[in-house]
Amino acid sequence: MSNPYIPVQAVVKDLRQETDGARPIKTFTVEIKDKKDKFKFSPGQCAMVGIPGVGESMISICSSPTQKKYMQFSIMQMGKVTSALHELDKGEMITVRGPYGKPFPIDEWKGKKILTIGGGIGQAPLRPIINYVRDNAKNYGALSIIYGARSPQDLVFLSELEGMKKDKSAKVHLTVDAEAPDWKGNVGFVPNYLMDVKPSPKNTIAITCGPPIMIKFVLQNLKKLGFEDDQIFTTLENRMKCGIGKCGKCNVGGVYVCKDGPVFSYAQFKELHPDF
């Protein structure tokens, strides 16, 4: 019988500073040490990333499963565990257990156009979709990315997104909340920018993640643009400890974000308990 509380060992192969400031974000490229410990996952799933002696945090896997050698996690320095993770150097060991949660139904989206709408670090759970769709471009329609953050310095994966613009693998629409020197892109909140970009709902799946307030208005605006409930998906978070629906922390009504989420269709989202 396997023990779901025992993590596997992994090595930090690479570190990329995504943003600076009071809450810096780093992308960790992580390789599980022992081949037999490697696990399969799908876009949208999460894993418990930890340091024994400090603790674990539930982090979305932000690499695509098409990249088989490693996993990536983009982690904002926030609490005890994420601060300890930010202290690590390349080559140091961490632990991982997972994958947890229900993934995006990405195979059901074949043949459709994909639109992601992200805010801040909320872009991290959208990145595996973006990279999966780019790696399987022949199976999907056009890929569009709407992404915003407070300032240009707070945009994560910026060089990747610029690269996609250049190689035309995606239509990339970037925005920041306020005017900033040297920023030539759009200025305005993500939900408003969505209305400016005005994507057509025709044969399109829209996936959004960001701060709760942003998600709320993006969902409203997607409905205004004519998206049906089954064309809209989001991914949520809550405090978690066990990851397997037992510790009682992440429930929204009878739904446990760790095992029943974190991915919800808009139809499911509307049925969630008003606690959220």
Binding site: Y5, I51, P52, G53, V54, G55, E56, A84, K241, C242, K246, C247, G248, K249
Partner: peptide, 24 residues
């Protein structure tokens, strides 16, 4: 009642991961 927390004890060199009762 079954809710719990998971806490680490010791240092990053040596220690234990514990499950402890928690309260909603």
């Amino acid at each position: 009642c079954h809710c719990f927390d998971i806490q680490d004890e010791g240092s990053t060199y040596q220690g234990r991961r514990l499950r402890v009762w928690d309260a909603c």
